[in-house]
Amino acid sequence: MDWQPSASLEALRQRAALLQRTRYFFARRGVLEVETPLLCSAGVSDPAIENLAVERGTSLARPRYLQSSPEYAMKRLLAAGSGPIYQLARAFRDGEAGARHNPEFSLLEWYRPGFDLGQLMAEVAELVLEFVGERPVEYIAYRDLFLRELDLDPLLAPPAALEARARAALDVGDLAGNRDLWLDLLMSHLVEPALAGRGLCFVYDYPASQAALARLETRGEVSVARRFELYVDGVELANGYHELTDAAEQRRRFAADNARRAQHGQPLREADDYLLAALASADGLPDCCGVALGFDRLLMLASGINDIRQTLAFDWSRC
């Protein structure tokens, strides 16, 4: 029986130091630390994320979902007038395990009322640089990144052209899917590796079809999502939005997610009525930007560890 930790004691000490400095970072800026429930009656609708659920217990009228991020609950606090808040949360995502994923992991998530996306990206850069040391910082639109790395326009190229580009470089067998599948494949297999060794790279203005909970804006003839992803040396570290505040639009996104779930035979997820009620309240969600950052990955980058398991006291296979 391998009862020993998967992280070295040195890595655990680094984790403790990182937690302390993170709290100090936000305390200095007057951002309030909060804790929200891990077990909630609504799951996540995003078709690319599956929840783990707790099925049984006398406290349960029906199954509850282990939260894949504290997003919905934190937005309810914002709608209740909390002001800027952050959380060091445990999050759970079913089926995600590998050198950079563990089904249970730590997320650092924070929200900044009144910030625009540029201000939030700058704050994320400040935090990350404090831990990983001096690195170059780059800001590039998703479209420009694809044009630069693949000479391909991700917003206008037909899906067949995206597929042809993927097939020219990779063996994907009989893989089939829509344009987002090919964009995701190109991003994760060809673009991400090209960012290795290039420091911090903020990719913003995602295709509208990949908006998740970000608001949309038009750029000339196309619509883009006010969302960013931060890559540090090719490792995807954080995902941020200029948050959607409109209850009706939020309701449409939940419905669209479920339509895609139905199409792919995935279980449907009921909309979080608490969140919808908060968005529809008199004050509603204040205009804000929010970001979720993989805390275990930040530790990987700060300590030069290449496998997430070596940052966890006990990885998924040891508990």
């Binding site: 590998g98 994923h101 987002d180 998740a212």
Partner: peptide, 10 residues
Amino acid sequence: FVKPGKGQAF
């Protein structure tokens, strides 16, 4: 296991 931030996992 590879997954872009939000999308399809491969």
